[in-house]
Nucleic acid binder design. Structure first.
Lengths: 348, 348
DNA sequence: ATGAAAGCGCTAACAG
DNA sequence: CTGTTAGCGCTTTCAT
């Protein structure tokens, strides 16, 4: 454990021949109240003793921990990572430390971790919720008055929490615009089980909407539990659209995309010859798989940044602001996987 | 900020009609010293007040923060992420929280972040160093007596720090065994500039060693600054080995692999027809790019776990143990990218 | 410009 | 089994 005989502010004060108060003032940059000579003596003592203030003691007094908590639904996820980086950048810039934890897609872990963060007296939390049903832990955050910003997903709670996420409706819209422009006739939408995860729900709803509007669409849900069913479903889909690759698969996220790619690979399905492929989310490997996967890229880093900035604002007292929910647009990145051999007239 | 009128142990004590000491005992599970009725009254009060102990105050007294710091060279890296997950799992199991920060490959940031962690009085640090030259910040860790475990990379410091990393020599060995067995004659090794990063240095040295031993090898260093040179170098390599795909490219890590793949893609080079490809490290997309990239997989999760376990051991007082450096073996995963059309007799 | 003193919320002897 | 007391290391009135 960190040494027993650590040096404290008292040691510094003694060495510099001043009071602890002065040292404290020095440490907090209130130099206006210190004579030049005092300042120098303290500076010298600090250096010589290699003194480091104890954050706990300070926090105890000031009620500020300098810590922000980030709770990610699944750390094993490229998207989450990029978001985290965005968060980290602004949080650090503001002089805060970041306490990261992984909820492992389990509301139980999420709750535990939030509990721990509260005890640690983080000054705010950025949460990617596992579930849109508010947990007791989130209630605690409210009652403890801990600033909270949601990311990627919303939660059914009133009043709404500040939230930063992808504009899912718009993303799906962009996907369909592209698909239609390319002249695809049939769409096979692959999603994880939606299970109270709002990003999935929103995307799926948007897809249904399009089915309704265009009447050229069929939707399948991939069930993680039964990948075989999925495989045969894909086959059926391919058979029905074997002519001239009029079918296209849309994947709801990175994980789904990886899964679909593995199936297509296994079954030796040619993309885009036999079927098109479009992914929501744009992992680093998207350009290189299947000759390049057309994607709707999320502004991941920015999502993290915005969320963190919002949190900083909350911490600085902007409690009840307007516009709580910020939806950032995704952007289409066209690649080989949606290159039909027989483009429609739109392409001309 | 977290409410001004937070409730403290005193409030609980008052409500339960006992002393703060008893409440403290209750909180720390020393129930042997509490009568059943007292216990119940306290439990009730805690619940009613929704009381949460203040971690700072506790830390101040106990000198234990319950926090571990993890400093990653580059958060934007699949490998780092997986390692982090391993760390998180054991750290949490031990009841600690994890303070994650990103050094952004800069020793300056690394130092800053370490400084912050010390002030936060983390009980230990797991560090993936940006550079093998020890920074002043690391000196501080030593003098402050903060337990430290290095991961992935070593540092030139005496006495050695506990370290957990891939057995790089063995990994390269496995790569070459595979390559030779496949009958490749020429090897093009691609690495980032080694710049004081020991994993890169170790791998490159191991490669040189093989060149020396087998005399069928040429080594090129990819310079990030000059990708054009690299491209033309690859071309030259391909020309010299145009006959029957006797050449193979080995990539030192994920980033390099991604770079090489993009170049090969751009130049429409066929893998494995024109050239073989083998990667050290096994990203999720390896099975799907270029028909599947043969890889030497690192035991990423396990690396993180072992490092964290080592740290826990240190914290629990096992200061001066033996065997400081733990090298975990990688494992070969054969895929399409090293499938020569004309296998050598070894394959028969 | 400087310091004395009180206290943040908790734990840990030490008594009873 | 329970409570009293004295801090942990820092900040902060309030004097001087």
């Amino acid at each position: 454990m960190p040494d027993k005989n650590v040096i404290t502010i008292a040691d510094v004060a003694q060495r510099a021949g001043v009071s602890r108060t002065s040292v404290s003032r020095y440490l907090n940059g209130r130099l206006q109240n210190l004579s030049a000579s005092t300042t120098n003596r303290i500076a010298k003592a600090v250096k010589e003793l290699d003194y480091r203030p104890n954050a706990w003691a300070r926090s105890l007094k000031t009620k500020r921990s300098g810590l922000i908590g980030a709770v990610v639904a699944d750390l094993r996820n490229e998207h989450a990572l990029a978001v985290l980086e965005g968060i980290e950048s602004v949080v650090n810039r503001h002089g805060y430390g970041l306490l990261v934890s992984n909820a492992q897609n389990s509301q139980k872990y999420e709750a535990e971790t939030i509990e721990r963060l509260i005890r640690q007296r983080v000054e705010g939390i950025i949460l990617q919720p596992c579930d849109n049903r508010p947990s007791p832990a989130m209630q605690s955050l409210v009652s403890e008055n801990v600033p909270l910003v949601l990311i990627d997903r919303t939660v059914d709670y009133e009043p709404t929490f500040d939230t930063v996420l992808l504009d899912n409706r718009d993303a799906v819209q962009k996907a369909f615009n592209h698909i239609l422009q390319r002249g695809y006739q049939h769409v096979f939408y692959v999603t994880d089980p939606t299970e109270h995860i709002t990003s999935r729900i929103e995307r799926e709803n948007a897809v249904w909407q399009h089915q309704h509007d265009t009447a050229t669409l069929r939707v399948f849900i991939r069930s993680t539990q039964e990948p075989e069913n999925f495989t045969s479903a894909i086959h059926k889909f391919l058979e029905q659209n074997s002519s001239a690759g009029q079918g296209v698969i849309i994947c709801a996220n990175v994980v789904t995309t990886l899964f679909v790619v593995s199936v297509l690979n296994q079954q030796h399905v040619q993309v885009p010859e036999q079927v098109g492929l479009l992914a929501i989310d744009n992992p680093v490997w998207a350009p290189y798989v299947l000759g390049g996967i057309t994607s709707i890229a999320q502004p991941t880093f920015e999502l993290g940044q915005k969320a963190a900035e919002r949190l900083m604002a909350q911490i600085q007292g902007e409690k009840s602001q307007a516009a709580k929910i910020l939806r950032l647009p995704g952007s289409l990145i066209e690649r080989q996987s949606t290159l039909r051999r027989f483009p429609s007239s739109h392409d001309l």
